[in-house]
Every structure is written in structure tokens, then in C-alpha cells.
Design a protein around this nucleic acid. Structure first.
Lengths: 226, 226
DNA sequence: GGGATGCTTCGGCTACGGTCGAAGTATGAA
DNA sequence: TTCATACTTCGACCGTAGCCGAAGCATCCC
């Protein structure tokens, strides 16, 4: 009967509205304190505290103490990946939030998904990398090619440094807004970081939106456009 | 604040142990009935029924009526994708159910399903009838064409006799070994009966296996092959 | 037709888990 | 030291949702 991992425990954790709000807030990739998360979730701090300890016990979030503050982040890439997959389902089922603010369009265009680029730009990036032979799809997985390594080096990504970490270099991630694939993994993260570093784009404070500069937009098209 | 789709509803659905078991069982790709799923989930049929209607309302599963049975499958690839992501979170390597239909090769090849032909032969028959314009798919249903009536008459089926009965002439039936459609209804029954009558095939006593003769095999291919 | 099987609906019971107020602990600032 | 802030623990309340027995349809078999 009980074969395979018990998904109900994990899903039940995400299933509570307050916890779902907490996790969604953490999808921005930013580290947030318990009080900030409580306000995001719309509950009191005591309630949030209970939720946070449950999430932490399940390794869905990680925490770091700094003075009297406690900063929370998502537990890992796989957590972000699962959350995006669920968002894809929820969006398909029409369970969109009733309030679709002006941020919504910007979110669809470009946003961070945990730590890498998502939205229309994320998909364009993925397809550009594919077309240029930087990455290659292998079944459900995606891998960096030899040519891709040199490409990344000239773009300014420390590939050898990434290799030392145990996290996978490339990983595909399903986009909830467009239902297409974009690039996750340490390479995905490094690419976004590099784009911010060279001034192509910057994060909009307090949201998941990534705003490209006009120069960055052009350069992006030039470097990754199909 | 509240960005993106509401994942908590979907996650809460998966979060119930009974429903999680149901979904895990359906991950095999096999279509299962409500009672089978109830036993998989470890609850009574009434409880399972309630769960199934909730899952269906959320488009997480799809259902198909076939006689007095109701076959359920996963709602789509994205559902499977999300479940896999959750399994990855829950325990790293998830051992999926891999029950693949009847073990007996003969059963998979050709067997009776209530009263009509199922298995590989049943599927081939259905597709042959479709290709020859004998039957026509109409949404989820299937109907006998005018050309089909004459075809059946020359094959030796008493179509007018069948029409007198109140049971529907054609009905599609989901194959449990191959997860494809074959033909049920009174025409499906009559076709199998006729094949036995003219010596193409015979039932193996005490089992559901249908054994084709070598002549019957050739004639079947000739008459219904694509 | 009668009987059996598969599924659904209804009603009521129960328990689990989310919620908050209040009090308790830790860290930093004055 | 004393106060202020950030977070946790405790206890109690309460609503929701899962559960099953019984009865009601629908379908098929003989």
C-alpha cells in the first residue's frame, strides 16, 4: 500500500494558506525574518512561528540566526522546483488570485524563481541556450555541453567554481505563467547573477520582478536571442 | 504581497493521506476504478467517492464512465510532474508503483472484457473499425456510421436485432492493460460472438483469454487490420 | 423481471490542526 | 542594570474536513 515517499505530509504543509503564503514569499529568493513572514502570511507572529518550525523540521526552509533576528530562506532548489510545479497546476486550474495587480504583467515578463530567471525572459534564455548549443536536452534532463562551458566562460561565469559545489549544474524548471521550460541549477543561478553584475537587469525591491535596462534588453537579445 | 497563483488549494488536496494515496496509485499511468482506488487509499468507497469528486473538480484527475465502472486517470502531464516534484522532496528517490496490467501475456494479447474483445486485439479492432469508417468518435462517445451498418451486415451481424435492445450499440471502453480504447456496447459483443461463431477464435475455458486460430488471425488482419 | 455490483448522497460523529492571548526566553541598546 | 525588540512556548478555543453507516441510483447479469 504505502509505496514510494509520503507526499501527503509535504503537501499538507504547503496546503495551509498561511504556510503557502510564507513559501510564496520566500520564492523571491530573499531571506526574510519571522515577523516579515508573519505579515506576508497575514497571521500573528506566534502562529507564524509555529508554521516556521514545522516547515523547518521538514527541511522545506532553512534558517540562519543573526543577532535577535532569524532569517529564513527556501530549503533548496528542489523546494522551489516543487513550488513552481504546483503554481503551474494552480494557474491551469484557474485558481489565480483574485487580485491581479500591475505587477502581474511584469512578473510574467521576468522574475526570479528562487534564484534563477523565470518568465518570458527565462524561457527566451533557455531556448537561446539550446539553439546555441550551450545546453542540450537529454530526456527529461538538461546538460551543459563542452561548447557551453567555453561560452559561459567568455560570458564571465566561473564554471569550475560551480563544478565544485554538489548542486547540479543544469536543471529544467517548469514556468507557471507560460507552461514552458526555463533553466535552473547552479548555471541558471550564475547566469542571473552575472546579468545583474554587468548591469543588464536589477531586482525590484520587495518583489520577484526583474527589471531589464534598455541596454540590457538589447544585449540580452544579442547574446541569447534566437 | 500575494503574487502568483494560489498553491494552497491544490496542495491541500494532495495533502490528505487518502487523496495522496489515490494520486500515487494513479501515477502508474493505469486507469483505476473507484473501488480499486478506495482500497489503495485504505478508506471506504463512500469516502473515496468524496475524494474523487474533489480531485476531479480541481482537474487533477480525469474520469471516464464505462458501464457501471468509472475509470480514473491523472488529469494531465503537469499533474504528474508536480507529484514527482513532491516525491523528490518527500524522500529523494521515490519508488513508483509499476503495476503493468495483467502479467499473463495471453491476457494482454486478447481477452474478454465483460462480453467484448479487449487487449491488443481489441485495440486493433477498434482502430481498424475507425480507419474503415465503420464507427466514428464523437467527443467522448463513439457511434455507428451508415456505412458501418452495411459493413456489419456483410460480416454477419444482425444489426436490426441489436437495435431492438435498449442497450447502446457502440460504446468505448478503456483497456486496463494498454490504457487505450476498445469497442464495447452491443456491437462489440456481437462482433466477438460472430468471430467465435465463424471459428476465428475461442475462449479458453476457465479464463478470460481469447485464443485466435492461425486462420482466424490472418482473417482478422485482413478484415480489420489498418 | 429479480438480484448483484459499482458508485453516490446524506447525516451525524469525531478529531486534528490552525488560531490567538498571555506569559516566557534571548539578544541588543541605553 | 533596565528597557525594548524578536521570537518561542503554553493553553484554550473553535471550525473544518475526514470518516463511516445507511439508503438511494445506475448498470449489468441471468
Amino acid at each position: 500500500m504505502k509505496e514510494g515517499p509520503d507526499i501527503s505530509r509535504i503537501a499538507a504543509l504547503i496546503g495551509d494558506p498561511a504556510r503557502a503564503n510564507i513559501l510564496t514569499a520566500l520564492m523571491s529568493g530573499k531571506a526574510l525574518t519571522a515577523t516579515e513572514l508573519a505579515s506576508e502570511a497575514g497571521v500573528t507572529v506566534q502562529t507564524a512561528s509555529a508554521h516556521l518550525s514545522k516547515l523547518e523540521a521538514a527541511d522545506m526552509i532553512a534558517c540562519r540566526k543573526s543577532g535577535r533576528h532569524k532569517y529564513f530562506t527556501l530549503g533548496g532548489d528542489d523546494v522551489g522546483h516543487a513550488l513552481e510545479a504546483l503554481m503551474g497546476l494552480a494557474a491551469g486550474a484557474g485558481h489565480l488570485r483574485t487580485r491581479t495587480g500591475p505587477k502581474d504583467a511584469a512578473l510574467r515578463e521576468a522574475r526570479v524563481c528562487y534564484n534563477h530567471l523565470a518568465g518570458a525572459k527565462g524561457i527566451a534564455l533557455y531556448q537561446g541556450l539550446l539553439a546555441r548549443g550551450v545546453i542540450q536536452e537529454r530526456g527529461d534532463d538538461v546538460a551543459l555541453t563542452d561548447a557551453g562551458v567555453t561560452f559561459l566562460r567568455t560570458f564571465g561565469v566561473d564554471v569550475d567554481g560551480l563544478r565544485k559545489a554538489k548542486t547540479p549544474l543544469c536543471r529544467s524548471c517548469l514556468d507557471w505563467s507560460a507552461r514552458q521550460t526555463h533553466l535552473a541549477g547552479s548555471v541558471g543561478r550564475a547566469l542571473l547573477a552575472r546579468m545583474q553584475e554587468i548591469g543588464w537587469a536589477e531586482r525590484v525591491e520587495g518583489t520577484r520582478v526583474v527589471q531589464f535596462t534598455s541596454k540590457g534588453e538589447a544585449a540580452f537579445l544579442d547574446t541569447f536571442g534566437v
